[in-house]
Design a protein around this nucleic acid. Structure first.
Length: 271
DNA sequence: AAAAGCCCCTGGATGC
DNA sequence: TGCATCCAGGGGCTTT
């Protein structure tokens, strides 16, 4: 589910409310993907200072150490003062003086991992290979073009890999390539400089607009206040196989790349 | 170094 | 109604 926009929307929906809270209790279910990496009780008494995002990871900063949270495919967070008893798939609770932060994740691809710092091995292993932030200053068209030049794989899969630029998942990869007019199967290294610049701009535009729309809710995404997103309503190609292109009315096509669905318009994305 | 597979896991939709 | 199969927003790890 959650790509950069959904993770960012989630962050914005509770960061200010939890900042300054003191941890009173930590409940870890039996079904977390990986071990937490510390004794839950050792977190009690620490303060949440801020919540940041790196790629699709949320970084919950504590006055000592931090928690890395990932929503995987099906995860969502809620933060509320009053929280019902944990139900099926509620795998983690951070009980604080300002409310309970709860992870619900049916497929259990999500994770909560403690690390002493961002540079400590636990965090570095997860964050180390990540590309630049697409909405940050470091996302530069010339550098982007240079990085693409070293990759012979299809541009869709290079975007998904997240080692050049982070946060573009399966929905937004298709959307971004449509906006840039680039065929998803094109080898990344064959994208010209002007087209790379167009793609760079498309990535920023689509992700920023999706954040503004509250993300995409396909099945069950909601932010930490339980609100759905609306970007899926303006998807140009994703999940629209056979439907008319919103620009030229050609039927949208679906192909598989690395076992994942890719959608594009054969007319608007000729190469 | 990069690319391609495999795997983790549950649930909903579809087909027989 | 029951059961098998396929598919889903991600990404770490191993093998080529």
């Amino acid at each position: 589910m959650p790509e950069l926009p959904e993770v960012e929307v989630t962050r914005q929906s509770f960061a200010d409310r939890i900042a300054g809270a003191r941890i009173e209790k930590v409940r870890v279910g039996k079904a977390l993907r990986w071990p937490l990496g510390c004794a839950p009780a050792s977190l009690v008494g620490r303060k949440v200072t801020s919540v940041r995002r790196r790629g699709k990871y949320l970084l919950v900063d504590l006055d000592r150490g931090l928690l890395l949270m990932h929503l995987g495919m099906s995860g969502s967070l809620r933060f509320d003062a009053a929280m019902p008893e944990p139900a099926l798939h509620d795998h983690f609770d951070l009980v604080t003086t300002r409310g309970v932060l709860r992870l619900n994740d049916p497929r259990r691809f999500g994770a909560v991992v403690y690390s002493d710092s961002e540079d400590a091995p636990q965090a570095a292993k997860l964050l180390g290979g990540l590309g630049v932030e697409p909405l940050g200053e470091g996302f530069d068209a010339a550098a982007f073009h240079a990085a693409l030049g070293r990759r012979k794989a299809a541009i869709k899969q290079v975007l998904l890999s997240g080692d050049i630029v982070v946060g573009v998942g399966n929905i937004y990869a298709s959307e971004v390539l449509f906006l840039a007019g680039i065929r998803p199967t094109l080898a990344a290294s064959r994208i010209s400089r002007p087209r790379a610049a167009r793609l760079q701009a498309a990535i920023r535009e689509v992700l920023a607009r999706a954040v503004a729309k509250g993300g995409s809710t396909l099945r069950d995404f909601s932010n930490a206040q339980g609100q759905s997103g609306y970007f899926q309503l303006e998807a140009m190609v994703y999940d629209r196989e056979g439907e008319p292109c919103r620009v030229c009315a050609s039927p949208i096509r679906m192909i598989r790349q690395g076992a994942r669905a890719t959608y594009f318009c054969p007319a608007c994305q000729k190469s």
